[in-house]
Design a protein around this nucleic acid. Structure first.
Length: 250
DNA sequence: ACCTATGTTGATAC
DNA sequence: GGTATCAACATAGG
């Protein structure tokens, strides 16, 4: 699930439920998820602190505390944030903040591809895909020989677009995922930005990227929900891609 | 049983 | 530098 919409919902959950609460102890024993920290390092940095703000850029989430470094969190491919149970210490809880009031904040992640780190490095993240301005989008996305789908999924170009949101946005903009990014006209770039922002906002509102219009049809044998043509399936930018061969030619 | 598939990122090689 | 490929993880399904 985790693309920008899921990350934003996780951030909002933390903002509404975890700010102002004091950390009693942290389970940071999964040094794969918490690398490069050793066990106890995050606990030592956060115990006694109170979270004061929850931020997000693209898929990256970070929390400020009233003392100590910010706490960075990334959901990876299968992670989600769970506040106040049920059952902190579930099998898939890879990182748990226990609050002094008895509650908890956990990163629940079966595949352990999520990450928790102190003082996260955000320097290689592009502007957030939901906020990027039109001139900035034109200048950053409309470059290079790579397919436009690979370009918009590059987190240092714009941050937050994953495999599903990319397919959804390209479909809404009626652009072929294979189009060379540098060949897009200004009008096409503007159309793509608009489509991506609309798809993103809608997914945040409705609960996640799976609530898109194209995404539910994104399976073998699926048809375009606008024109009914059988969807094409292939690999673009190394990722499984679905698109409408009738509407998304150019 | 064995193979492929899956929302992520990063390290590597050309 | 930009681009492509593979690996990391753990599970589900044909």
């Amino acid at each position: 699930m985790p693309e920008l919409p899921e990350a934003e919902r996780a951030r909002a959950l933390i903002e509404s439920r975890a700010l102002g609460r004091t950390v009693a102890a942290v389970d940071d024993g999964d040094t794969w998820v918490c690398r490069p920290h050793g066990p106890g390092e995050i606990d030592a940095a956060l115990s006694g602190a109170t979270f004061t703000a929850a931020h997000r850029r693209g898929k990256a989430i970070w929390l400020d505390a009233d003392r100590g470094p910010p706490l960075g969190m990334h959901l990876g491919m299968s992670g989600r944030i769970v506040v106040d149970g049920p059952g902190p210490g579930e099998r898939w809880d890879r990182f748990v903040v226990h609050f002094a009031d008895g509650g908890s904040l956990a990163l629940r992640d079966m595949r352990r591809l999520g990450r928790v780190v102190l003082d996260p490095d955000l320097s290689r993240l592009g502007p957030d895909a939901a906020d990027v301005s039109r001139p900035e989008f034109r200048a950053r996305v409309g470059l290079g020989r790579a397919p436009v789908k690979a370009r918009i999924m590059n987190q240092s170009v714009i941050a937050g677009v994953g495999n599903l949101l990319a397919d959804e946005g390209l479909w809404r903009a009626r652009l072929s995922p294979r189009r060379e990014a540098g060949s897009l006209s200004v009008a096409e770039l503007d159309r793509l930005r608009r489509a991506l922002r609309a798809a993103t906002r809608r997914a945040v509102r409705l609960g996640g990227v799976h609530t898109g219009e194209l995404v539910p049809h994104r399976r073998r044998g699926g048809a375009c929900p606008r024109c009914g043509a059988p969807l094409e399936r292939g690999t673009v930018g190394g990722r499984t891609t679905y698109w409408c061969p009738r509407e998304q030619r150019g």
